[in-house]
Amino acid sequence: MKKYTLLFMYSAFLFSCTENEDPTLCGVDNPVENLAWIKETIEESQSNSLSQYSYLIQGSYKGETVFSWGSCCPFCNSIVLVADCQGKVIEDASISEVKNQKIIWKPENSVCTFD
């Protein structure tokens, strides 16, 4: 049950920030390294037995930069939520509405394939 709870947590993290021409996201140059909640979640993910299925997406939602934890787990059901830089869920957001999605992190042992 803990595996599924942790997987839900990963998919629940979608974070947004003000998008501008400056390459900083959420006030930092490298959100994977410099945002504590992303770094902490990555560390937790890497200690999970399902870590090879996790990845982090960056995209744009309503003019803001967003982040979303994804999973390519073939036997898991997951829900993807959108949240702001502080982790507050954006209730009306959907991953299908996130534009310009790109993978900005995946574990070294990733089994996910991306086109």
Rank of each mutant, 00 (worst) to 15 (best):
60 S>P: 00
110 S>D: 07
4 Y>R: 12
62 K>Q: 12
13 F>T: 09
115 D>S: 02
108 E>G: 08
104 I>V: 01
82 V>E: 10
82 V>G: 13
41 T>R: 13
108 E>P: 04
16 S>K: 08
73 C>K: 04
44 E>K: 14
30 N>D: 15
52 Q>R: 14
76 C>I: 10
1 M>Q: 08
83 A>F: 00
18 T>I: 04
85 C>L: 11
19 E>L: 10
71 S>E: 02
40 E>D: 13
31 P>L: 05
55 Y>V: 04
105 W>Y: 10
10 Y>M: 15
26 C>G: 12
82 V>D: 13
4 Y>E: 14
75 F>H: 09
109 N>Q: 13
75 F>P: 00
114 F>R: 06
66 V>C: 15
104 I>Y: 00
107 P>R: 02
75 F>G: 04
94 S>I: 02
79 I>G: 11
30 N>L: 03
25 L>C: 05
98 V>M: 05
15 F>Q: 08
86 Q>V: 06
98 V>C: 02
86 Q>T: 08
14 L>F: 09
82 V>L: 15
77 N>P: 03
112 C>T: 11
49 S>M: 10
102 K>M: 08
47 S>N: 15
52 Q>M: 06
36 A>R: 12
85 C>Q: 13
108 E>K: 14
26 C>A: 12
57 I>L: 05
48 N>K: 04
51 S>M: 03
85 C>P: 00
46 Q>I: 10
81 L>P: 00
106 K>S: 02
21 E>I: 02
10 Y>H: 13
49 S>L: 09
52 Q>G: 01
105 W>S: 07
49 S>P: 06
37 W>P: 10
50 L>E: 05
14 L>D: 10
25 L>I: 15
30 N>F: 02
15 F>E: 08
79 I>R: 13
20 N>L: 06
42 I>T: 01
93 A>K: 08
13 F>Y: 13
105 W>I: 07
68 S>K: 00
39 K>E: 03
71 S>M: 08
54 S>F: 15
45 S>K: 07
89 V>L: 07
83 A>N: 06
79 I>A: 11
55 Y>P: 03
58 Q>S: 10
61 Y>N: 10
45 S>R: 12
63 G>R: 03
28 V>K: 09
65 T>D: 13
65 T>P: 02
78 S>R: 10
13 F>H: 13
53 Y>R: 05
26 C>P: 04
43 E>M: 07
88 K>N: 13
23 P>M: 07
66 V>L: 07
84 D>G: 09
61 Y>T: 08
26 C>D: 11
96 S>T: 11
69 W>F: 08
17 C>A: 08
66 V>M: 03
56 L>Y: 01
24 T>P: 00
99 K>V: 09
18 T>H: 04
48 N>I: 00
107 P>D: 01
86 Q>L: 07
33 E>R: 10
2 K>M: 13
91 E>V: 10
8 F>K: 15
46 Q>C: 09
73 C>P: 01
65 T>K: 11
110 S>C: 11
90 I>V: 15
99 K>P: 05
74 P>S: 04
17 C>G: 12
106 K>D: 01
10 Y>S: 12
4 Y>V: 10
102 K>L: 06
33 E>N: 09
12 A>M: 12
39 K>Q: 07
103 I>A: 06
105 W>T: 08
73 C>G: 02
89 V>N: 05
39 K>D: 04
114 F>T: 08
19 E>F: 03
24 T>Y: 03
33 E>L: 12
72 C>D: 00
